[in-house]
Write a protein that binds this DNA or RNA. Structure first.
Length: 493
RNA sequence: GUCCCCAUCGUCUAGCGGUUAGGACAUCGCCCUUUCAAGGCGGCGACACGGGUUCGAGUCCCGUUGGGGGCACCA
């Protein structure tokens, strides 16, 4: 199903892809997908001093990691290219020349100093309008041409119609927003160095690319009437705008470095799942029904709608992101968890274990006890550490030993456990049988169950905290379990 | 200075004139339990303030306060 909906995400490659940008990208992508439309990626690199090719690559990589596939744009092409603004300079020039020829734009010869002085003067006389004073608006055409040809530096300014009246933006999330055109100045559309300004280039691109819905940050709302002036001068249809609120840090201020990680790649590197990250970000300012929180990307791509975007600025909550991440991890089936979390993490941690070193059943059992204890992928390594250690290499936590093992009577516990477990034949070495063998010890020794198991736990896992003992011991294997008890016996009293 | 936006639990939100103001995260308690998780159950917790409109306002209007953004030859 295709429709005429065309949306774009147009990041500036002046840095990495930020959380806010990522959410804007997600909304654009989801809106396109939900409406059978086209999602376009465009690189807005009109600021050559701050844009780099490297940043562009970082952004593309982040987009791919987020799973936001674009239908037109860098690397995939499309019928409306090129998709980088620096490659579209001729298009902007053409558009500007047309506007100039039609009298909808005019050259301005004011120097920055002149402009500055005007602004100061406006401030001093408390003029409510402090924008451009339109000094060059009425220079006769032939005089203007002569000065241009004489090589006098000039910028091109848009001519805001005198009688334009109210500019009404019918925003998809804010409703009608009204601006008085009198507050708009004749802003610069082309700099004296021959490059277009953002407000001009963006509109030319959006018009040429047939963008139907502009979904972008709130910070552009005040610029929108200016852009509408350009659409109107160009004679192009004005798209539907949807201005989404910004993402704030915990202190209510705009999210920035001092709030911690702000770029998508930092979250990827920290181990967050793409699906969970997208889900969390989508929920930051949008809701499906106010109840559902786990919304897989396919549901998002089907159900996303502009009407359910919230107007409030949202505070980024890392805790909820963590919860979401754990939620996605916990929802994995055993083998998926093994393949996408456990094995990669083990490899990264330098653990020699590979898929082939154990049976599928063994891995699945391990997954079933490790997964609910895994909030972040890296946790899988520490949680399963006792399983991958041996009686020789197992590290004993000093505190745990002191508290659970090196106490009066614990030697007796280990001796009894050693005997009970020793009677279990190798082919009956499973969690249920191990638990059953250990169960009678508390009565036989007249000790608290808690203490009995604590001693065995420390002996087997080196720590008072571990996954369930029976399963863990099954995974460790009979011989090594017995060897661990022998080794621990020396530490017990 | 001026223009614009925003305002429901600590956080994300549902609500689109009549609700015991719902859900999620966080937090606290209980249950489960050999530890830690996971899971289950429950508690705490919000309509910024002041005026209107209306039989009735979280919901509509105005103002105040508080946040945020724009007003560049940045994007």
């Amino acid at each position: 199903m295709t429709s005429n909906v065309r949306v774009r995400f147009a990041p500036s490659p002046t840095g990495k892809l930020h959380i806010g940008g990522a959410r804007t990208a997600i909304y654009n992508w989801a809106f396109a997908r939900a409406n059978g439309g086209t999602f376009i990626l465009r690189i807005d690199d009109t600021d050559p001093t701050r844009s780099t090719a490297e940043n562009t690559q970082v952004i593309l990589r982040a987009m791919r990691w987020l799973g936001l596939d674009w239908d037109e744009g860098p690397e995939v092409g499309g019928d409306f290219g090129p998709y980088a603004q620096t490659e579209r300079l001729d298009l902007y020039r053409e558009a500007a020349e047309r506007l100039l020829a039609e009298g909808k734009a005019y050259p301005c010869f004011c120097t920055p100093e002149q402009l500055d002085a005007d602004r100061k003067a406006a401030q001093e006389r408390k003029d409510p309008f402090q924008g451009y004073q339109r000094r060059c608006r009425n220079i006769p055409a032939d005089e203007a041409r002569a000065r241009m040809e004489a090589g006098e530096p000039y910028t091109l300014r848009i001519k805001v119609p005198e009688d334009r009246g109210d500019v009404v933006i019918d925003d998809a999330v804010h409703g009608k927003v009204v601006f008085d055109a009198k507050e708009l100045d004749d802003f610069v559309i082309f700099r004296s160095d021959g490059t277009p300004t953002y407000n001009f280039a963006t509109v030319v691109d959006d018009a040429l690319m047939g963008i139907t819905h502009v979904i972008r940050g709130d910070d552009h709302l005040s610029n929108t009437p200016r852009q509408v002036m350009v659409y109107e001068a160009l004679g192009a249809p004005v798209p539907t705008f949807a201005h989404i609120s910004m993402i704030l840090g915990a202190d209510g201020k705009k999210l920035s470095k001092r709030h911690g990680a702000t770029s998508v790649e930092e979250y990827r590197d920290a181990g967050y799942l793409s699906d969970a990250f997208v889900n969390y970000l989508a929920l930051l300012g949008w809701s499906l029904d106010g109840e559902t929180t786990v919304i897989p990307r396919d549901v998002l791509a089907r159900e996303f709608s502009l009407e359910r975007i919230s107007k409030n600025p949202a505070t980024f909550d890392p805790k909820k992101l963590d919860w979401m991440n754990a939620e996605y991890i916990n929802a994995m089936d055993d083998s998926t968890f093994v393949d996408t979390i456990l094995l990669p993490q083990l490899e990264q941690a330098g653990c020699p274990a590979v898929r082939a070193s154990h049976t599928d059943a063994w891995w699945n059992l391990l997954a079933s006890i490790v997964r609910p204890r895994t909030k972040m992928p890296a946790d899988a390594v520490s949680v399963s550490a006792p399983v991958f250690a041996t009686a020789k290499t197992l590290a004993y936590d000093e505190k745990s030993v002191n508290k659970g093992l090196a106490k009066e009577g614990m030697g007796t516990v280990l001796d009894a456990a050693r005997v009970a477990l020793g009677t279990l034949p190798a082919d009956e070495w499973n969690a249920a049988a191990i638990d059953a063998a250990l169960e009678p010890l508390q009565d036989a020794l007249a000790m608290k169950k808690r203490l009995v198991f604590q001693a065995i736990r420390v002996a087997e896992c080196g720590n008072m905290v571990s996954p369930p003992l029976g399963e863990t011991m099954q995974l460790i294997g009979r011989d090594d379990c017995l060897a661990r008890i022998d080794r621990a016996r020396e530490m017990a009293l």
